[in-house]
Design a protein around this nucleic acid. Structure first.
Length: 867
DNA sequence: CTCTCCCGCCACCCG
DNA sequence: CGGGTGGCGGGAGAG
């Protein structure tokens, strides 16, 4: 039967026979985590996706099915990438009703219900018949059922930044039903979300949705805790150990600990809207604790890359129970579960750290880094590296350059242990490197948003602020909200300083108070930032064209660097299983379990707290890893403190050197930043993960970069695409115009903001330039940098086709914090809806009939919002 | 083969 | 005690 169904594709897809499909699939499929859309193939073959799976396994009974053309629809959903799809997604996100419908259609159908599914299949059959197999392929594969995908769907139902006023309740049952999964799965998701305070348990089957408002705060706290725990050291130790394995036995690593105390802090919900009723009870949910710890590892890591084995070891050791390697496997499983959720949140992405021995699965933090609010950090970094530049906003860029130089050139800094070098040498190719990530760097706008948001929050404090904050009716237009990613070219780094970089910023920025930037202080004006945000809002609200310009910050961020990643950790490879024993005995071991949570946490958000960490991190926040102290990395044994760190970084450095440039951000500054809205293309972003290739990175001078911002679900569709062309020397420093489009909102308005008058015509087109970029949903920021404050310029003409409105931002000087930038794939959000694609819903769901609705409704989008 | 991680049994624990 | 939770690990899909 199956066969029958499939045939369509033949008809439809001109392209190739089934084989192709298969191939494609294969290609597409990346790791599981990633989103894969089969859709691409699809255009024609509607079928595939969902129905399939079952089909293969079960038979369809086409007869049964009514015919439902649905498939097509589904397909689309599945494929997020198309502009249309994006819109759809966005819209759906915005409006609950729509969401429901969508879900019902797409999401659910697939799965288990063979019956239903079949229907689809039938249609398919009609179409073509032959390619049954294909269908099978499409069948919900494991990927489709993955927790990551499920999580995306889950997240799609709720606004990232809900109005404070609206409290959204999540009914586990409803969600499970609507998503077509077992409740057990929902627990996994919710637990992780809870660990980040995105949700909190309200009652029995009820969770309250908080959204990301407090995420920065949470991350900040986790970072602090991580520091306290000395996770960095632990990681370093383990990594070192790995390196040295042969050489050294490990010494002791100390960990210090007081674990408990710290841990207790974990999970505190700072602002739980709901009383965290249950919070602590139970065993504490190791998943929650694990999730927090896992996040802490990233936050503390200079490279922002954490290998699973290291994470698992640390967790094992900490757990009070005796660490037994036997648990290693289990821990790793859990880490994958957590990682899938975090990936869906666009906080991390999967990468591989390649080491001599092989590659190790790892994840890279792509979420906000600066939530700490310390601008200082940035400053510090730059200062440390380049004191003189420090002030300059672009200093960061320079830093990159330097680093780059360092890599290429001498790494004196890196004295790194010889052994490390040896290793490196041994593998000329790329000893340690992050494989996947190479694609360009991209920043996540989200981080910026986070920054803003945070600031705002600080001002108003927590939730309250939300209400205050002007939020576009549509749920979430928070400026802050999710942003796309910026991608940067590595290359730029090389030439970082080239004038172009600042170009944009120059003009405009200056106008704004750049100084802040110069100082490196972001804080500068939280208030201002906030105001800025607000200002933005109106536009958003209008439903019309909105202009949101994260600009400065983005640029800044972007500048910041990404490099870090490369280093990767390295480290141990021990095996998964066996590893444990070897592991050190970390003392840490705080009892993880307790999540004491105390709710109250110290939130000091108010104050920037800047100080607290600032120094320590030095490098931390930024990925920059300047090896300050070459220290002996070699000694690994003493991971402990500082020394260790140094060592690690060093490694990184080495690595980086090898790495494709991609990683680095570089400051290429692109003069132009143009933002164009595109619905079409880029948006698709597809999964984040997409392999970025180096291509991007290597871009040529001429490339433009664009930044595309998609609106997360929360936002009604707000997509922005910025393109900056980096022009090499030739191009003037013009800042490109920016366009914003808000598809979600009724019309799609596009805005262009041009910093300076200069606009590149191209810019609009730009996007296409980089394939990758395009692909990414997020925005890519080119090198930008510049101090960037405001990007937007009133003057800038708009040029896009659609109605555009330009808004000038007030100048709010936005502080920019460079560091955070990273590429992210975050597309997840965007995709979500589609993603569903077939989620295959679970097989049997308990009886749930698919009810979808309720949950969504709850979502309420803030007032007007959505729909 | 290894990497991922889905799935769901079944222990907890709360009400 | 029943039901909500969620630890845990077998086992299988994907690569």
């Amino acid at each position: 039967m199956e066969v029958n169904c499939l045939t369509l594709k033949d008809l439809i897809s001109p392209r190739q026979p089934r084989l192709d499909f298969a191939i494609e699939d294969g290609e597409n499929a990346q790791k599981e985590n990633i989103f894969v859309d089969r859709s691409r193939m699809a255009p024609k073959t509607p079928i595939k996706n969902e129905p399939i799976d079952l089909s293969k396994q079960k038979k369809f009974t086409p007869e049964r099915n009514p015919i439902t053309p649905v498939k097509l629809v589904d397909r689309q959903q599945v494929e997020p990438w198309t502009p249309t799809a994006n819109l759809k997604m966005l819209i759906s996100a915005a409006s609950p009703d729509i969401r429901d419908r969508e879900k019902k259609k797409g999401l659910f159908r697939p799965i288990e219900n063979k019956d239903d599914a079949f229907t689809d299949s039938l249609q398919l059959d009609v179409v073509g018949d032959s390619a049954v197999d294909e269908f099978e392929k499409q069948r919900p594969s494991r990927k489709q059922k993955s927790l990551g995908l499920l999580c995306q769907k889950f997240l799609a139902r709720y606004p990232s930044y809900p109005l404070s006023t609206e409290k959204t309740t999540i009914s586990l049952d409803e969600v499970a039903v609507s998503l077509g999964v077992e409740r057990r799965r929902i627990y996994d998701i919710v637990n992780v979300l809870e660990s980040l305070h995105l949700v909190s348990r309200v009652a029995k089957n009820q969770y309250g949705w908080h959204g990301r408002h407090s995420l920065p705060k949470t991350l900040r706290n986790l970072q602090r805790l991580g520091e306290e725990q000395k996770y960095e050291e632990q990681m370093a130790y383990l990594q070192q150990k790995e390196l040295d394995l042969m050489d050294y036995k490990f010494g002791e690593r100390r960990k210090d600990g007081d674990p408990d105390s710290q841990e207790q802090q974990l999970l505190d919900f700072s602002e739980p809207d709901y009383p965290s009723s249950s919070a602590n009870s139970r065993k504490d949910k190791s998943l929650r604790i694990m999730s927090q710890k896992f996040v802490m590892l990233f936050l503390v890591s200079k490279t922002k890359i954490v290998t699973l084995d290291v994470a698992a070891k640390i967790l094992i050791e900490e757990s009070q129970d005796a660490p037994d390697h036997s648990k290693f496997k289990t821990k790793v499983r859990r880490l994958y579960d957590i990682a899938n959720v975090l990936t869906s949140l666009a906080l991390i992405k999967k990468v591989h750290v390649t080491e001599e021995r092989g590659r190790k699965p790892a994840f890279k933090w792509i979420g906000p880094v600066d939530f700490s609010s310390n601008d200082e950090e940035l400053v510090d970094v730059s200062a440390s590296v380049l004191p003189e530049l420090k002030r300059e906003t672009y200093g960061q860029i320079q830093v990159c350059a330097k680093q780059k130089l360092a890599r290429h050139g001498s790494f004196n800094t890196v004295q790194a242990s010889e052994r490390i070098q040896r290793k490196v040498n041994s593998e000329p190719s790329s000893p340690y490197r992050e494989e996947q990530g190479s694609g360009g760097y991209s920043l996540e706008i989200g981080s910026l948003a986070a920054v803003y948001r945070q600031k705002i929050e600080d001002n108003s404090q927590g939730k309250a602020f939300a209400s205050k904050r002007v939020v576009p009716p549509s749920s979430g237009l928070d400026p802050v909200a999710p942003f796309p990613v910026l991608s940067v070219d590595p290359e730029y780094c090389v030439n970082p300083l080239a004038h172009p970089v600042f170009s944009v910023a120059q003009t405009d920025l200056q106008a704004f108070s750049v100084q802040n930037g110069l100082n490196g202080q972001v804080d500068v004006s939280l208030a201002s930032a906030a105001s800025a945000v607000e200002s933005l809002k109106p536009a958003l609200l209008a439903g019309q064209p909105l202009v949101y310009v994260p600009s400065a910050s983005l640029f800044m961020l972007y500048g910041s660097l990404q490099e870090g990643p490369a280093s990767g950790s390295v480290s141990e490879r021990d095996d998964r299983n066996s590893a444990a024993p070897a592991t050190v005995e970390l003392s840490s071991a705080p009892s993880a379990q307790k999540r004491l949570s105390e709710e109250r946490n110290p939130q000091e958000e108010d104050e920037p707290a800047t100080k607290r960490q600032s120094r320590e991190y030095e490098d931390g926040p930024l990925s920059l890893v300047m090896p300050k102290k070459p220290s002996d990395s070699t000694d690994l044994a003493s991971p402990k403190t500082m020394g260790n760190r140094a060592s690690i970084p060093l490694k990184d450095i080495h690595v980086n050197g090898h790495l494709p440039a991609a990683e680095e951000i570089s400051g290429k500054a692109t003069a132009n930043c143009s933002v164009s809205s595109e619905w079409g293309n880029p948006s698709r972003n597809t999964d984040a993960e997409k392999p970025s290739k180096e291509n991007e990175s290597t871009k040529e001078p001429s490339l433009l970069q664009y930044l595309c911002v998609q609106s997360p679900t929360g936002l009604n569709g707000f997509n922005v695409l910025l393109s900056g062309s980096h022009t090499p020397p030739t191009v003037g420093p013009s800042s490109g115009p920016v366009n914003f489009s808000l598809p979600g909102l009724g019309s799609i308005a596009q805005l262009l903001v041009g910093p300076t008058a200069v606009v590149n015509p191209k810019s609009s087109t730009l996007p296409s330039a980089d394939p990758q970029l395009q692909g990414q949903p997020s925005l890519n920021l080119s090198p930008v940098m510049s101090r960037s404050h405001s990007v937007v310029q009133p003057e800038s003409p708009v040029y896009m086709g659609h109605p555009v409105s330009v808004v000038k931002l007030h100048q709010s000087p936005v502080p920019v914090t460079p560091k955070s930038i990273e590429r992210t794939h975050r597309e997840t959000f965007f995709k979500t809806p589609g993603s569903l694609g077939d989620p295959v819903l679970k097989r049997r769901e308990r009886n749930q009939s698919r009810n979808t609705s309720s949950a969504q409704r709850r979502l309420e989008i803030p007032s007007g919002g959505a729909d």
